[in-house]
Computed example of a mutant assay.
Amino acid sequence: MAGHCWLNGEVVATLPATDRGLHYGDGLFETIRVENNQPVWWLQHLERLLKGCRCLSIVIESGVVEQELKAFITSQIASHGIVKLMVTRGSGGRGYNSTGANHPNRLLLWYPLPKYPVSYFLQGIKLYDCQTRLGQQPVLAGLKHLNRLEQILARQEWTDNQFAEGLMLDLNQHIVEGTMTNIFWVAESEVQTPALTYSGVAGVCRQFVLEQAAQLGLTVKPGEYKVAALARAKEVFVCNSVIGVWPVTGYRHWNWPVGKLTQQLQALINAVMPCERLFSEH
Score class of each variant (00 low, 15 high):
K234G: 10
L171I: 14
L108E: 11
Q162C: 14
E157F: 06
E235D: 02
A233G: 05
R206H: 12
P222C: 01
K234C: 07
V236K: 02
V220Y: 12
F163L: 09
L196C: 04
A141W: 01
G178T: 04
V236L: 11
Q162W: 06
F163C: 03
Q131L: 14
V209C: 06
Y116M: 11
L218V: 09
D170G: 12
Q137T: 08
A141T: 08
V209F: 02
I175M: 13
E177V: 05
T219R: 10
L127P: 00
Y225H: 02
L169A: 12
P104D: 02
P117S: 13
A164H: 05
L140N: 13
Q156Y: 08
T159S: 10
P114S: 05
L230D: 00
V139W: 08
V186I: 09
C205M: 15
P104F: 07
R133A: 13
C239N: 04
V227M: 12
V238R: 00
L169N: 09
N240R: 03
D160W: 09
G217C: 03
V186H: 06
V238H: 00
E188I: 01
I125V: 15
L218K: 13
W158F: 14
V191C: 05
E188L: 03
G217L: 03
V227H: 04
K144R: 14
Q131I: 09
N240P: 05
L122W: 08
H174Q: 14
V236Y: 00
A229S: 08
L143Y: 07
L210I: 02
A228P: 00
E157S: 13
C130K: 12
L171G: 09
L107D: 07
Y111C: 06
